[in-house]
């Protein structure tokens, strides 16, 4: 077989991952509740063909619970990082284009948000917003925009100093025109990559906060909840409720991260020479 180059690889990875995520998401929506309903006759079964991930102490099928849990995680992750990334774009541009005072204020807020550990901040915000899905979403969205906003701020500042932007100004173009035509096309790849690299963060934080018991309610199948329940039985020799859902989470996060990384290299205008 011909060795694939990076562009082809990235495209393939994109497609596979997109399909996988879509599959997880859709099946999560379509799974009937019976699929992971408690069945005390089938409690504590180790992995088998019928139950690929085994069952937990209540006899719930862990595979379907994981899929359902991932689908919830993905929803939270995607929604929260989209909100976060769009906010980052506006805030970053505002900081770069605005007056010194605006820039100072934004930088101060960024420092403030980044100064508090994410998990703690998410828990606090989530509590204030009344916990549950909504609380978690707002919490994650409010904490993840900082580094991307900083990146966009510095990028815009660099771009504004470019010769072609100066030329554009002397050709009578307005600030808004320059922003849309010169700056945004350069920011878009940064933005997309930043967005994609935010997913795994958001998903992990969702799982972590749920694991700690501050996120989704315990009756909801979520990766964090499954993992936190499994902890209790780990010492009793029930390894599978922890291992398989955990591995699935790691796999998804790893794949998304890899995709973001590859995409960044492909979107670089100098990557044509590779």
């Amino acid at each position: 077989m011909k060795k694939l180059n990076r562009r082809a690889k990235t495209l393939l990875l994109c497609l596979c991952l997109g399909l996988l995520l879509l599959l997880v998401y859709i099946s999560g929506l379509l799974i009937p509740e019976e699929a992971y309903a408690p069945d005390f006759m089938a409690a504590r079964l180790s992995p088998s063909l019928r139950h690929p991930f085994g069952t937990d102490t209540l006899g719930r099928d862990l595979f379907w619970r994981t899929v359902k849990g991932l689908s919830v995680s993905l929803t939270v992750g995607i929604a929260a990082s989209c909100i976060s990334a769009v906010a980052a774009l506006f805030i970053g541009i505002a900081a770069a284009v605005g007056s010194k005072r605006v820039d100072g204020l934004i930088s101060w807020i960024i420092d403030l948000v980044m100064g508090v550990p994410h998990t703690v901040l998410i828990i606090l915000i989530s509590f204030v917003m009344g916990r549950g899905l909504k609380g978690l979403l707002v919490g994650i969205a409010c904490t993840h925009w900082c580094s991307l906003a900083r990146l966009i701020r510095s990028e815009v500042m660099q771009l504004r100093a470019k010769d072609y932007v100066a030329v554009s100004r002397r050709l009578g173009k307005s600030g808004g025109w320059i922003l849309v035509n010169h700056l945004l096309p350069h920011l878009l790849p940064q933005f997309i990559v930043g967005l994609i690299l935010m997913f795994p963060h958001a998903i992990l934080h969702e799982a972590a906060v749920s694991f700690l018991g501050f996120g989704l309610p315990p009756e909801q199948p979520a990766i964090g909840i499954i993992l936190s329940e499994s902890m209790k039985y780990l010492s009793a020799g029930l390894w599978w409720p922890a291992v398989f859902p955990g591995l699935t989470l790691v796999l998804i996060v790893f794949l998304i991260d890899k995709l973001g990384d590859n995409l960044r290299r492909v979107l670089d205008p100098y990557s044509a020479q590779e």
Binding site: N5, R7, L11, Q273, E274
Partner: peptide
């Protein structure tokens, strides 16, 4: 010589 991408996925 340099290896480059053309408009498609080919190099």
């Amino acid at each position: 010589s340099f290896r480059m991408y053309d408009a498609t996925l080919e190099q």
